[in-house]
Structures are given as C-alpha cells and as structure tokens.
C-alpha cells in the first residue's frame, strides 16, 4: 500500500493511503473528539463529533469516514467546528435526561465527558416529548430508551463483531429506539452493553448495587473457558458486583461471553463451603482445620504404610491455578510417593 503525506493542525505526517483522517490524526498525536466511532467497528458516522475542515472544501467532513489524500491540510479545531460539535451534543441532549446521578454509567460516560468538555450548561432546543417504550431487553440487559442517543454502536457491534444482528433501530426521529429484532438469536453476550457510550444499556444483575467510582476494579483472568479473557471484577464491600472489560487488555479486546460477563454470582453464593466437613457415623459435621487436616494426613499415612503409595490416587484441577497444580502434584509425588495424579483434561 503506497503512502501519502498530509498535514493535520500543521503537523506533517506520512501514512498509508487506506487510512482515514481520524487514524492519521491518532498517529500524529492529535485528538479528535468522537462519540459513535469504535476501533473495532467500521465507521458509523452518526454523531458528527469528529468533523474536521479540509483546506479547499467548504463543508466540514467526518474524520472517521474520510480517507486521507496526498497533500491535504486538515484542521481539527476551529470556532466553526466547536459550534458544530456543541450543536450536535445539544441535539442529543434534547432527549437525553440528565439523570446522571442515578445512572449506572455516571462517572464513566463518554457523553457526560463531552458535554463537560464542550461547556454545555443549557439546551435551547425543545422537541415534543415522545414516550419511548423500553422494548429491547434480555433478561440480563436493560434498555433505557430515554438515555439512548442513537449512536448505533450497539447495533453495529452485534452485527459486525458478533455477526448476529439481534437488534436494530425502529421508528422515526425522536421516537426511534433500539429493538430486539431476533430475540431468539441474542446470546446475552453483552457486547452491545459494553460499547454503549452512555447508560442506555445497563446490566440487569447489578443495577443500583454500586457506582463506578466507588467500586474497586481488579484485573484478572476469566475462570470459564480456555480463551483466557481478561476482565475486571468490580468489587464493593468485599463482594463482586459486576464485571467490566478494557478494550486494550487480552485476547478478548473488550469482548466477553455471557459466562464471563454475567457468570459471577457463584462467587458470593450462600451455598459456598465455609468450613471443613467430616463424616461421622454417616453424617457430615463441621470441623476445625486442625482436626480435618490431621484426619486426612493420618488416613493417607496409614494407607500409604499398609498398602504402599500407589494405593493412593489424586485428581488435580483444571480450574485451579498453575501454582496450585504444581504444589498438588509435588505433594502427591514427593510426599505420598506415587505418580497417580491426573486431572480432567480429557473430559
């Protein structure tokens, strides 16, 4: 692919000619504000935030969807561009409630950030209030039509990243909303939820349980399949109240499946084992660690002595960590003295 040279805000830069102005600006270290644009999707071009001026053209252009050309000179910031962007945001706010204090997304909302950046404190436009029904919702994801800004990220993600197309836009103008067009195909993967730049899609398990800024986020590896997705456990008062992802972390690049995103409730389940149990006269009784471990050590030693180490066998776990698997087989080989150790790789 051949290269072209252009200037962006006076910075000269050479990029391959299949790049967009937005991509070239990023390479040059120039930030252009965006709202609907998402790295992993084709440009959507619905929000008009990334408009730029190109010398010789009267109309501003969308940087996300315009390819670079040799010799052009691009301006990303001017009075006119500021007003266009401010106006676009105001049009969005006509219908977007300012319920930030009770919205799950408050504090990490792209729209909130942009409104702040463009110093909008009042909206002069009015539109007749249309009641939008909350149509699209799976049992795990809730849709708040009033907060939806019609950026189309969710619809695009479901179509492009998941190749499913379970949701789409229905209705006109301010009455339009995202609806589930193929409810049977939706996998509740939460891809749509994750790319939503506002609080229009929220997780239905942890709603209201904690605000983004008061919960701590711990980056870890998913406990389900072998993809090894990277995810953040959201922790409040020693419980996991949700799972989030980062676009830049791990093989999953922000995606998860239904298990990784919503399968965290078992951690805090009441049915977790909390005390060692010993079977006495056919019934389980709670015991202290000392008693339980002494019993196990005693029995294993006795059987080893009477029948030899190979009369003991052990199963390690594909769910435990590397370090634990290492210790487990070390214990079986070095302390018990047998190679009878396996796990369920085959199952």
């Amino acid at each position: 692919m051949s290269n072209v040279t252009l200037t962006i805000d006076g910075i000269e830069i050479t990029v391959s000619k299949d790049k967009t102005i937005l991509e070239a600006a990023k390479t040059a270290g120039v930030r252009i504000p965006t709202l609907c644009f998402h790295e992993r999707m084709n440009p959507i071009g619905s929000c008009r935030m990334c408009v730029v001026e190109v010398e010789g053209f009267t109309q501003p252009m969308a940087a996300c969807d315009t390819r670079v050309q040799d010799g052009i000179s691009v301006t990303t910031n001017s009075g006119q561009l500021f007003r266009i962007r401010q106006d676009s945001l105001k049009l969005i706010l006509v219908n977007h409630p300012l319920d930030c204090p009770v919205c799950d997304k408050g504090g990490e909302c792209t729209l909130q950030d942009l409104v702040f950046e463009f110093g909008i404190d009042k909206v002069e436009y009015h539109a007749p209030k249309q009641d939008r029904l909350s149509e699209y919702a799976t049992s795990l994801i809730r849709y708040w039509p009033d907060r939806c800004i019609m950026c189309l990220r969710c619809v695009t993600a479901c179509r492009e990243i998941k190749a499913i197309g379970a949701i789409d836009i229905r209705g006109d103008g301010y009455g339009s909303q995202v609806v589930s067009v193929h409810p049977d195909k939706c996998e509740s993967c939460g891809e749509c939820l994750m790319v939503c730049p506002t609080g229009a899609l929220t997780e239905n398990l942890s709603r209201y349980k904690g605000r983004p800024w008061i919960s701590e986020r711990v980056m870890t590896t998913c406990t389900y399949c072998g993809c090894g997705c990277q995810l953040e456990l959201n922790v409040l008062n020693n419980s996991v109240i949700g799972v989030t992802t980062r676009d830049d972390a791990g093989v999953n690049r922000g995606s998860l499946c239904v298990k990784g995103r919503f399968g965290y409730e078992f951690i805090g389940s009441d049915e977790r084992l909390t005390k060692p149990l010993i079977r006495k006269n056919g019934k389980f009784q709670e015991a202290g660690w000392d008693e339980a471990l002494a019993l196990v050590a005693g029995q294993l030693s006795k059987i080893k002595k009477e029948s030899g180490p190979d009369a003991i066998a052990a199963l390690s776990s594909a769910r435990c960590t590397n370090e634990e698997n290492y210790l487990f087989q070390k214990f079986i080989r070095a302390v018990i003295g047998t190679n009878n150790v396996d796990h369920c790789a085959r199952l």
């Binding site: 870890t220 590896t221 090894g228 093989v251 951690i267 909390t274 010993i278 435990c320 960590t321």
Partner: peptide
C-alpha cells in the same frame, strides 16, 4: 469422608495458562 473448603479464582493470586499457551495473572 472429609470435605475441605477451597477458594475460587476471585479469592486468590496466581496464574492460568490459556489455550494459546499464554500465562496470565489471576
């Protein structure tokens, strides 16, 4: 005969190795 209560991935430090042989932190 004896049941010992262990802890789940959210309650410990360590590593997992994924399908592509990548060693990642828990």
């Amino acid at each position: 005969d004896v049941v010992l209560p262990g802890v789940c991935f959210a309650e410990k430090d360590g590593t997992f190795t994924n399908s592509e042989r990548k060693i990642q932190r828990v």
